[in-house]
Each structure stands twice: as structure tokens, then as C-alpha cells.
Design a protein around this nucleic acid. Structure first.
Lengths: 237, 237
DNA sequence: CGGATTCTTGATCACACTCAAGGAGCGTGG
DNA sequence: CCACGCTCCTTGAGTGTGATCAAGAATCCG
């Protein structure tokens, strides 16, 4: 629960391209419209709980955050994993609709939600941008719904790996080796499976030579095509 | 595929409260910002396919529409059921992200997407309203994700009945009897189940005296409390 | 009234979950 | 630096549940 709030530092951040997430930024950064406060989170700490009053929108500059909802008997569904460039929090909502936790050590920029809402009302450009952000989040959720509703376990894991790989490729240089900073349980709770099933699927992929596991939650993809084939079964037209 | 396009008629429509959907309207209607064309769809006809170029946003004034995506081997996931007051289609998207079909005979108002986008850029009030519409759709999708990822079949069906009942109660007068205009297969494809499982769950609810089935796809709810208990297992805080 | 579709129920099967145990990796402290 | 302990990961065995396959009943619609 240790939270370190740094002084309001330079809101400008390095060249990082936006990624799919709960909220996704279009191209211009919020920092060109608003001032922000930087904040650091330790691994496993909570940015906000489900139901907390929303005071800020957060832009991730480093690290990975997971958003989730919990059922009364403890079942958990992870809604998404967010990384550098993604926004966490919803404008025009008084309460948080989900819980946001740091998967790794994380740095975020905090934008007071009232300022953001005022800026949206003032600036059509920002409004349009935020709409696209919300919309892309919605598109991502739609893919998630299809995975959870109609895909087999191996297809879900393949989809997850392909999507995560695409995210990584956008942010850093293209590489076959990904770091999956979240635990197997997190992946399972994202994919609507158990950690054992996730493990077994990954082991099968290893045996088939599609991927190779490395120490430190890293995975090397040897046959991206196979993963994409298993994942992208969506038919258009 | 018979499509009847009526003359541009009075865009004003009766007092119908908005409902949860792909896009949900806040309170003011689009018709106060834009002109529209009315269009009627026969049951089972397609409003647009997945991947079609998007030319319009549609506001449903009567009937029920389902949105879905299909996997290559025929598996189908229904994303949502939309009714009077809901919007179908996404601004700032060139292509439709899903297929929209009429479950019943449907009447919609068509708003040219370019006009809508221009109006959004012009009017911060409309932009804010559209943001909330998109956001509420996203909130609904989040509930869907939780159902699909972590709820048991009976809980999913209960959630569906409760949500649908709430929608109906908002639109018309409060009543224990709902019409479920969609087929069992549609419900199954929405809930990530098979039609047989949906049937069995409904039969169990009947045996338990929670609901009663009536001819014509109608259902009477005798014990809403039980359904809500099964459905609303979401834990906050 | 007849044909087609949809709905319901039953029997069987496969697969993912549960329960359990061992192993690997990591962090901490001596 | 190594040893220890903890957490996380992996694999196995067995079970339960929802999917599949199949047939009959009800309902819709012409």
C-alpha cells in the first residue's frame, strides 16, 4: 500500500506509441491540454478500488496495470492489462467501475478529472480524441467478449499472446521475446480459465515448438503464424 | 433483405427512456441536433454486416436489434441486444465492427455519420453526450465480460433475465411479464452457452417456481429476488 | 390443417476444473 | 555467497459439468 507521490514533474514523456487498453490515447497527449502530477506505484499496489470516488484519470508512462472486478465469492475477472500510453479511469463517472492494480512498478501521470471534463467541454478536438479512446477500449472489449464466449482455451491463450506481442512491438522494437509480467493466475483470470489450464496450454505450445519459456516470465515466440491462425478466427462479411 | 425507406418524417419520437446498449443515449435526442431518415426493417433482415462501410448511425425507435460477430468456423457471439432509444453504429469508424440484425420488425432513424461527426466537433454538449453513450456501452460490455468469464450458466441466464427485465421496466410500465423476442439460440450465443443449456436452466427456474414460460416467447417472473441474487454477485470494495 | 422451425428433454461424452504434489525461481537474511 | 522459505509454476489423476448427439413436443405461419 506504499504510495509515493512525487512532486509535479515535467509532464512531457518519451516517445511511446499508444496501445490498446481500457482507454487508449489517439496521438496527441493529454499533457498538451492539461497539467499533471507524476506518481509512482510499487508492484502489487492498488491505484484505486472498485467503487472508489474518481478524482483523476491516469496516463501510464511506465509499467503494467491490471483492471479487474471481483464477485462476492472471490471469483475474479480481469478486464484488461494496460501499459505505457494507456489511460486508466473514465471521465464523467463519479465512481470507479473496477479495481486498478500495478502488475509491475508503475509510473503514472495524474490528471484531475474535473479539469479533464472542463477541457473536454472546451475543446472539440480533445472531445473527439477522448471519444476515440473510449471507442477503442470498447473495440478491445468486444474481442475479449468473443474470446470468453466462443473460443477454446488454446485459442484464448493464443489470442492473448498475439495481442500482447502486438502491443510490445508497438512500444519497443520488434522482437520475438516478450515479457509477460503478470502471473499465470492473472492470465487465467483474464481469459476465464484456471491457471492450470493456462499452464497446460503453454506447455503444449512449447512441446509443439511454437513458443519457448524463459526464466523471468519471458516467452520467445518461434511460430507467430500458428498463434495468429489459432487466434484470428474472426470472420468478416 | 426487403428494406423500406420511408420519406424523411418527423424526427420527433415519443417519450422513450434510453436503455443499455452498444451505444446509449443520454437524454437529449440526436434529432435535436440532426435531421434523420426513417427506415423500417423486417424481422431477420440485416441492418449492416461486419466490415460494411459505415455511412450512418441508427437510433432505434421500435423493435429489437442484435449485434454479433462470427468466427470462421461458424461460431457466433452476440455482443448485445438493443431496443428503443439505443444507438447502433460507432462514430469515427470507417467500417462496421460487427453485424447488426433485426430480431423483430424494427424502425430506426438514420443519421448520416459525417453530419454526426461534424455536429460532435461543433457542439461540446453533443460530444459529451456521445461520450457518455459510448461509455455506458463500455460499462455494459464489462458486465458481459464478467458473465462470460466467471459466471456459471444459471448465473448468466439469471443476469440476462434481470437485465432484460430492467430494460423493459424502463421503457414500458413495470410488469412481471417480459417478452423475449430473440430465439434460444440467440440467448445462448449471447451468453456463451448452447441452446440446450439455456433451455435446461430455464426449465430448472420453472420447476423452482422462479419463472413461468408463456406461449409466444414470453416469460413471467415470479421471484425476481432469486434471479437478482443469482445474477448480482459482484462485490464492490 | 400441414410443414417447418423452434423448443425441450434425454443419454452420452469430452474437456476443463478440482484437488494434489513436486519443482523451479526469487527474495530475504544469516 | 549460500541456505532457507516462500511464492509461483508445472504436471498428474480423477471428477463434474456443459457440449454433443439425438429424438420428440410445441409453436408458428402459410
Amino acid at each position: 500500500m506504499t504510495r509515493q507521490i512525487s512532486d509535479s514533474t515535467d509532464p512531457r514523456i518519451p516517445h511511446s506509441v499508444s496501445r490498446t487498453g481500457m482507454l487508449k490515447e489517439g496521438g496527441t497527449r493529454l499533457s498538451s491540454f492539461l497539467t499533471s502530477t507524476q506518481r509512482r506505484l510499487l508492484r502489487n499496489s492498488v491505484l484505486f478500488h472498485d467503487g472508489d470516488p474518481q478524482t483523476s484519470i491516469y496516463e501510464i508512462t511506465e509499467g503494467t496495470i491490471k483492471t479487474s472486478k471481483i464477485l462476492m465469492d472471490g471469483r475474479r475477472q480481469i478486464i484488461g492489462f494496460l501499459g505505457a500510453g494507456d489511460l486508466v479511469g473514465e471521465p464523467f463517472e463519479e465512481e470507479a467501475q473496477y479495481c486498478a492494480e500495478a502488475v509491475t512498478d508503475v509510473t503514472v501521470l495524474c490528471y484531475p478529472i474535473l479539469q479533464l471534463e472542463a477541457a473536454i467541454t472546451r475543446s472539440p478536438a480533445l472531445a473527439r480524441q477522448m471519444m476515440q479512446v473510449v471507442h477503442q477500449a470498447s473495440a478491445h472489449q468486444m474481442d475479449h467478449i468473443i474470446s470468453l464466449g466462443r473460443k477454446h482455451p488454446a485459442e484464448r491463450v493464443a489470442s492473448f499472446l498475439v495481442t500482447w506481442h502486438a502491443n510490445m512491438s508497438k512500444n519497443s522494437c520488434e522482437s520475438r521475446t516478450l515479457s509477460l509480467p503478470m502471473s499465470r493466475i492473472d492470465i487465467a483470470d483474464y481469459l476465464g480459465l484456471t491457471q492450470e489450464t493456462v499452464c497446460r496450454v503453454l506447455s503444449k505450445f512449447k512441446r509443439q515448438g511454437i513458443i519457448q519459456a524463459k526464466p523471468g516470465r519471458e516467452v520467445t515466440i518461434y511460430d507467430l503464424r500458428s498463434l495468429e491462425y489459432m487466434a484470428e478466427t474472426v470472420f468478416v462479411n
